[in-house]
Structures are given as C-alpha cells and as structure tokens.
Design a protein around this nucleic acid. Structure first.
Length: 441
RNA sequence: GGUCCUGUGGUGCAGUUUGGAGUGCACGCCGCCCUGUCAAGGCGGAGGCCGCGGGUUCAAAUCCCGUCAGGACCGCCA
C-alpha cells in the first residue's frame, strides 16, 4: 500500500500498468542508464520485459551512475502513467538496492534494438547476448510452440515419452553417428527416436517425444546442427499416411496458436506475422510435382530424379502460395529408393511410398509417413538389403507380437523457428549450437 | 569431402586494387555539459604487435608463401 504499512510485493515489469499508484518492488538487470542534467532514466530488464525507472534524487542518481550495465538490483517505487513513458507507464520515487554488481561493461551491447555483433561473437558470449530482448524473444516463441504442440497432442490422447539417447547401434542409414565409450563397449548417440517411438505405439498407440538427436555429419551449413531438437510423433491404427498428415496439420496449427496465445508480446517485438495454417493443407504427389515443374519452368530431366532439389522445393513453395494461397504444401509419395527401410510402400504403386514431406515457405520442415507394421515385411526388407537381423532383434520383437498400421513424423524445432523468424542461420535460433567447430559455450 | 570469401583499438566496419608515419567512421568506455530521455544529445579524452610466422622492398595493414581462426555455397539432411 502507498502508506508503506504492508511490504511492497514483487511484480514483473510487464505488470506495471496493473499497479498504478501502488508501492511495488521490481527486480532485474540494468539494461540502460540515461543521465540528463536534472533527471536519470534507468531501464530495468527482468525475465519478461523492460521498465523505465525515473530518478530525480541526486544521491540516488550518483549511486546508480556507479553501476555498469547488467548490474542486478531491486527497486521499490510507484508505477505512474505518463504519456512520455515508453509503454505509457513508468516507475517513480524509486529506492534502489544493489544485488550483484557487474564489474565492467558487458561484452555485448544489449541496448541497441538489434545486436550488431557478428554471430560467432554473439555465440561465444551467449550467456550475455541471449539476454537481449530480441534474442530471447525467439526462444520464448520456441517455448510457446512446444506448449502449443503439447496442448494439441495431449488433448488427442497422445502420451509424451522419453527414450534413450545412448543406443547400441546406428539406426538410420546415411547420417553419421557419434561413437562413445560405454563402459568399455561401443555405444552411439541416438540419431533419432524412430525405433523407440514405433515400439511405444504398441504400448500407448499414440506417443510423442521432444528431445535431442545427434548427427555427426561433417557438413557445416546455415541449416545444420550436430545436435538439434526433434519433435517426434507416432500413432497407430491409421489407414495410411493421410491420417498422419492430418495430425501434422493439427500440430503445426497448435504451435502457431501457442505462439499467438503465449507470446503475443514477443511477436510484436519481432514484428512477426504468424503463418496461416489452412484447414486442409494442399498436397501434391511427388511425380505430379516433378511433371508440374517440368511443364511450368521448362526445366528438363526432373521427372525420374529420386528427390527434389532445394530449388524445386522453393519453386513448389511459391506455387502453393500462388495456386492455393498456402504457406504449407505436402509433397506425398516419395520414391521408395530414397526412403528408410521401415517406410511403407504405396499399395497401388510400389515404387512410390506412403510418405510425405511438408514444405513450409519453400523449405523442407517435416518428414513422415506410414511405416511397415508386419514382422515378415521387416525381415524381408532387411534381408533384401543384406542386413544382419541380430542388431534389430529388440526392435523387431515389437512387430512379431502385433503392431497395428502406424506412422508418424518429425519436425526440426530449430529449423521451424529459423523459418518463422526468417533467420539467416539456424544458429540464431539455437541457444548453444553444436556444430563441427563449436563445442562451447 | 569440394569451391570461394574474410581476419584492422572491447565491438561493427572503411582503408589493401596502385606499398610511403596506425589514417578514418559508428557503437561501447572515461570526463565535462545538457528539464523527460526512448539506440538520448553536445564537447573532449583514453584505447592498436593491422590474426600469427616467414619472404620481397629503402619502406608492408597493403605484394608473395605458409599457418591458424571465422564465414558462405555445393552434396546430404530436419
């Protein structure tokens, strides 16, 4: 209360307007300090936002003048509406208490609207650079995306699971694995929860996992990481991959809703427009897409290629926007030749698969499809590929004892964020990226 | 794995083509000034082995060789 008889309570900077005229306490970091001849402005940043503190008292002004940016302090004061204040409310009549003093100016200039340092420098000083309101806003959007995903899947009866990241054998073909010393035996860091989430369909029918995966690929590009967060979903009792695609649509829409509901402030700060997720995302068959590209662009030799080049995905993204008014497009029916062994073929056209990619603004964002579910099919495809069945024994046990038709998909979380905020480099949407050259911080 | 680009005060850049004194801009820092700033503004100041090693030259940030660090593209992938 204003008479001081009740201890002031701590509020967030974002709640300032709810407490006009009351005596309140804020805690946070000094983001900026502007000293004029008769008045000082201290900008406080807390976990959620920023707040301007007006300092008129000369002794107090001299005290805060000693602080470097990022000094942690507590301030008791009175929120007051003012047309001159950023956001319309500011804290007046402040009493400061220093909590942890910063010994020198921070290595990153956090005052500017957008950090100007180069990305490697920002990453080297991530502990500080992530404090920048725009930098951290990206990751609050990421958290809101995950909350939206969980809300949709939990409501649909999916169970969130956690599977091991230390595994006995490499699972996926292609990607290189990180080998580790596991109590004297060889172990590997998991490239994907694929096998485990399939096995768990036999337990819960519908599962999802949000967790890290590891790829020891030597490639060093703006869209690859050695460790990234994979949003994995798998469900049983499906007709075909179109059932899976309907879940993809709901999950993506839920992620967008999550951001709209939980991170409106960050969306405004970053001046972002969320994508519209259509009630039904348009889809095109892989072969039809190739023929379309040849017909519309005049390019030859596209039909028959086993995969779409990045340039073709970009073209299809533009086509979907033009033709269907959609940022999203499913490409279905990729050739079996390019898909992993557990992929279910198209019963009518066995050279094509019941799989799909979701192209978002011209970039491959989601890969998924229907899986094989009969034990005999797994034995056959692995044998045909010349593979020893022994390493797959515990995985195959799930299929020996009854698995329903099932399928699923995976979304790269950092890549989703990167496309959303239009980042140039996926490292901008990774807190502490791991790549060929970077193991710390 | 292949190709290309960049290393200049704490930070971000000019300067290198055509060798001539560490020259310049912006941010940050220090000091002074300024009745309400919004990345505040004004004036002044400090701060450099021009990544490192070697070579050419009367003379190298600049040219050559090597090396280290960082970045981009391609293949593959999410």
């Amino acid at each position: 209360m204003a008479d001081g008889s009740v201890p002031a309570m701590r509020i967030w900077s974002t709640q300032l307007h709810e407490h006009v005229g009351e005596r309140v306490v804020l805690r946070g970091w000094m983001l900026n300090h502007r000293a004029l001849s008769k008045v000082d402005f201290v900008i406080l940043r807390d976990g959620r936002g920023v707040c301007q503190v007006v300092v008129n008292d000369d002794a107090t002004r001299a005290a805060v003048a000693q602080w470097h940016d990022e000094t942690v302090f507590e301030v008791e004061g009175t929120p007051k509406e003012s047309r001159q204040a950023p956001g319309g409310v500011e804290l007046v009549d402040p009493v400061f208490r220093e909590i942890a003093r910063s010994p020198e100016p921070p290595p990153v200039n956090l005052r500017v609207p957008e950090p100007r340092e180069q990305l490697p420098y920002l990453l080297d000083h991530a502990a500080v650079s992530l404090r920048h309101p725009r930098r951290r806003a990206v990751f609050r959007l990421g958290a809101a995306s995950l909350a939206g995903m969980r809300a949709v899947l939990d409501a649909d009866g999916f169970v969130e699971i956690q599977t091991p990241k230390i595994v006995a054998s490499a699972t996926e073909t292609g990607a290189n694995v990180f080998r580790i010393d596991y109590f004297g035996r060889p172990g590997y860091l998991a490239q994907s929860p694929q096998f485990y989430k399939q096995m768990m369909v036999g337990v819960f029918e519908r599962v999802y996992e949000i967790g890290p995966v590891f790829r020891a690929e030597p490639h060093d590009t703006v869209r690859h990481l050695a460790e990234y967060v994979s949003l994995d979903v798998e469900l049983g009792f499906i007709e075909d991959h179109f059932d899976v695609m309907r879940v993809v649509r709901r999950v993506v829409a839920g992620m967008v809703d999550g951001m709209r509901e939980r991170a409106a402030r960050e969306l405004a700060l970053l001046d972002l427009a969320l994508p519209e997720v259509p009630d039904e995302i348009p889809h095109v068959h892989f072969r039809d897409a190739q023929e379309l590209i040849e017909r519309e662009t005049g390019e030859r030799g596209v039909v028959g290629e086993p995969d779409l080049a990045p340039a073709h995905e970009r073209w299809l993204g533009e086509w979907a926007r033009r033709e269907h008014g959609s940022d999203f497009l499913f490409v279905v029916g990729y050739p079996m030749a390019k898909r992993p062994f557990y992929t279910h073929p198209d019963p009518d056209r066995p050279e094509f698969s019941n799989s799909f990619d979701l192209v978002y603004r011209g970039l491959e964002l989601v890969t998924g499809g229907q899986r094989l579910h009969r034990y005999e099919d797994y034995v056959r495809v692995l044998t045909d590929a010349g593979q020893d069945l022994e390493p797959y024994e515990s995985y195959l046990e799930a299929f020996r004892f009854g698995m329903p038709p099932h399928g699923g998909f995976a979304i790269g979380w950092e890549r989703w964020l990167a496309r959303l905020v239009e980042a140039q480099n996926i490292r901008e949407t990774t807190l502490f990226p791991r790549d060929v050259n970077r193991l710390r911080p």
